[in-house]
Design a binder for these strands. Structure first.
Lengths: 193, 193
DNA sequence: CGCGGGTTTGATGATGCTCAAGCCCGGTGG
DNA sequence: CCACCGGGCTTGAGCATCATCAAACCCGCG
């Protein structure tokens, strides 16, 4: 169950066997069925989840009922509404499973304890948060700087893994365009080659 | 010089007189003229700066020479390329002054020492980073979810201070629209009332 | 007074959205 | 085993939004 988990962590900071055993104690496994919620708008996000298997998405819903993708998480990624998780305020987002998923979850209390007990994990999460800020900034720049086609190309190049796993209408929402436009862009690109 | 500085910090965490004196020692004042750079693309961002007076902006420049605003900082705000500052990697951004400015700057070494010596400042920056993530997410959602007019209205409502200080063509760039479009939007809104 | 940066205005065209229909494919029930 | 259904993707026509290009305007400053 923790195989992928430690593989990923050890890529960034290496933990001793003893530390790994300590870390394990903070996490609870959970399975999630396709379409099942991990978090619904209005609730406080109680868990930070590592995806061992499957795919999650987070999104918010606007006044007209439109869904806007915030984030996807494939195997080896983390998922939560970071803000709600850390602050304890109710979330504006929904999180659910795009495919059946297996998670490892930790609460805020566990998280804070773990930081103290296993300082290398604090380092790991610092790196993670930094990367999170960077990728959000990239996406923001992309979304204010480029045309729909350019945005799609940039995403496909920087995140080819997403293209193989995420339905296209969700990719469209992630890019802030309609599924129809995305379909035409893909047609256009395939004709070029 | 440190008046606004401590007013702002004490709003989030209150420091004793002794702590304030300790904190002061880590910062260096600096004046920046209008149009003068604090950071240029390719350099490492060596300083995190608190704005005591004036206005800064950070932006990146695309292949066609277009500027895209990342962030503004009025009095009481912080400015840096957080990623470059923390990681030591060269920045893709430029930072310069929109108006003559007075700054209080700290290096990464100073920053890290300060965290250890004055734990309350660590707490302060945790809050700051959290807020940063939240506002970036808001902006992202805004930019993928709304029309140009809606984006402008949302910005004007959430950040009225910016409207009074930042030239409109920079606001337009921040929103990812052209100055002409922004001008027409404003005309349209003023006619409504 | 003249210059220059910033903002406005107008005309035109491209980009992307909306609405509506059709297609493809996997899953379900008869 | 086939017929049907539904979800996701595609296609097309028409329209709204926004960008582009060009020109005029406004105002503070040298």
């Amino acid at each position: 169950m923790f195989k992928l988990f430690f593989t990923h962590i050890n890529q960034k900071v290496s933990l001793t066997a003893a530390e790994q055993n300590e870390v394990k104690t903070y996490f609870t496994p959970k399975k999630l069925r396709r379409k099942q919620y991990l978090l619904q708008e209005g609730e406080v996000c109680r868990y930070l989840a590592f995806v061992e298997k499957g795919v999650l998405r987070s999104y918010n819903v606007d006044a007209k009922g439109g869904e806007h993708m915030i984030h996807f998480a494939l195997e080896g990624w983390w998922m939560a509404d970071t803000y709600s998780f850390l602050s304890g305020e109710p979330s504006n987002y929904n999180i659910d499973a795009i495919e059946d998923a297996e998670l490892l979850m930790i609460t805020l209390e566990g998280f804070e304890q773990m930081m103290v007990q296993v300082p290398r994990m604090e380092r790991y999460f610092r790196i993670l948060f930094q990367n999170n800020i960077i990728s959000k900034e990239r996406r923001l720049i992309s979304s204010i700087s480029y045309s729909a086609e350019e945005k799609y190309i940039r995403l496909a190049e920087s995140n080819p893994q997403l293209m193989q796993r995420i339905p296209l209408h969700l990719i469209a929402s992630y890019l802030g365009i309609t599924p129809e436009t995305l379909s035409r862009i893909r047609k256009h690109l395939s004709q070029k080659k």
